[in-house]
């Protein structure tokens, strides 16, 4: 059976300075459907580079990356954009919602680019997603009118808009207080149980504890791969 994500000998080398720096130095791994993976490591360990490449925001210098059985390591910017739009969802540390734009319009955004749904259906789906993340009745609020935890829920709803099989989260609780962090992590756990694959970067152990698998990186290499449950 093929894996959802399969990378082989992935390298990312930055040659900005005098010495080329390998942010990723030959990483291979597989992630299966429904896994909740936490990528951990000190800053500079390469975990963010890893997430960027897995999230098709960046391309590796060498190596192969099969997403859903399709090679995506060498694709044009346009093709990568389409892959991100249809197969991947993103949740960022600083939420990245469009300012002065209502929650519901923020959630609708991925389908604006996909154009899969009619206007009415898109709105209905966005409302359903807001309800699912516990924000029914807040659709007309702009980000400035929402708390950090609420903003991150809007971001999660947005990430789910186009029904992607996999969700990438980059320090999703980094800007949140403990209570909101727990709520967000509980939401991730629910989504994971519903079968959505989650790949999350974090440096906090208690956040990583929600995941079912821990990857630890150091100096661009994968040094530990624990299946917790």
């Amino acid at each position: 059976m093929s894996h959802l994500i399969e990378i082989r000998d992935l390298k990312k080398i930055y040659s900005a300075g005098e010495e080329p720096v390998a942010a990723l130095d030959g990483v291979s791994l597989e992630i299966d459907n429904g896994e909740f993976v936490a990528i951990m490591g000190a800053s500079g360990s390469g975990k963010s580079t890893m997430l960027n490449i897995l999230g098709c925001l960046d391309v590796p210098t060498s190596g192969s990356y099969l997403l859903d059985g399709v090679e995506v390591a060498r694709r044009s910017r346009k093709e990568l954009a389409i892959i991100r739009n249809q197969k991947l969802g993103f949740v960022f540390q600083n939420f990245n919602l469009l300012p002065r734009t209502s929650a519901i319009e923020n959630v609708e955004l991925p389908d604006i680019y996909l154009g899969r749904l009619s206007h009415a259906k898109r709105r209905r789906r966005a409302l359903e997603l807001l309800k699912r993340v516990g924000l029914s009745g807040r659709g007309t609020h702009t980000p400035a009118e929402l708390s950090g935890g609420q903003q991150q829920r809007v971001a999660i709803a947005r990430a789910l808009m186009n029904e992607p099989p996999v969700l990438f989260a980059d320090e999703p609780t980094g800007n949140l207080d403990t209570k909101s962090s727990i709520e967000i992590m509980n939401l991730f756990t629910e989504l994971s149980r519903e079968g959505i694959t989650i790949v999350m970067v974090t440096h906090e152990d208690d956040i990583a504890a929600y995941a079912t698998r821990h990857l630890v990186m150091r100096d661009g290499k994968l040094i530990k791969d624990d299946k917790v449950r």
Partner: peptide
């Protein structure tokens, strides 16, 4: 620029 980055991350192509 952050809006542009976000739009690209969620699937806006360069042409978009």
């Amino acid at each position: 620029i952050k809006e542009i980055g976000l739009r690209m991350a969620i699937g806006a192509t360069p042409v978009n």
